[in-house]
Simulated scan of single mutants.
Amino acid sequence: MIRGIRGAITVEKNEEQTIIRAAERLVRDLIKENSIEPDHVASVLISVTDDIDAAFPARGLREIEGWTYVPVMCMREIPVPQSLGMCIRVMMHVNTKIEQENIHHVYLEGAVALRPDLTGKKMSI
Rank of each mutant, 00 (worst) to 15 (best):
Ile5Leu: 08
Arg6Cys: 00
Ala8Trp: 13
Lys13Ser: 12
Lys13Glu: 13
Glu15Leu: 15
Glu15Pro: 02
Thr18Pro: 00
Thr18Ala: 12
Asn34Gly: 09
Ile36Glu: 03
Ile36Tyr: 06
Glu37Asp: 14
Pro38Glu: 07
Asp39Ser: 14
Ser43Tyr: 13
Ile46Arg: 00
Ile46Pro: 01
Val48Lys: 14
Val48Ala: 10
Ile52Phe: 13
Phe56Leu: 15
Phe56Glu: 12
Phe56Cys: 05
Arg59Ile: 03
Arg59Met: 07
Gly60Leu: 04
Leu61Met: 13
Leu61Trp: 11
Arg62His: 05
Arg62Glu: 10
Ile64Gly: 06
Ile64Ser: 03
Gly66Asn: 12
Tyr69Cys: 06
Met73Trp: 05
Cys74Arg: 04
Cys74Tyr: 01
Glu77Thr: 13
Glu77Ala: 15
Gln82Thr: 05
Ser83Cys: 01
Leu84Gln: 06
Leu84Arg: 09
Val90Trp: 02
Asn95Phe: 06
Asn95Tyr: 09
Ile98Cys: 08
Gln100Phe: 02
Gln100Asp: 14
Ile103Cys: 02
Ile103Ala: 00
Val106Lys: 09
Tyr107Trp: 04
Gly110Ala: 14
Ala111Thr: 10
Val112Gly: 04
Leu114Met: 14
Pro116Arg: 05
Pro116Thr: 07
Thr119Asp: 07
Gly120Tyr: 01
Gly120Asn: 01
Lys122Trp: 03
Met123Lys: 15
Met123Ala: 14
Ser124Glu: 14
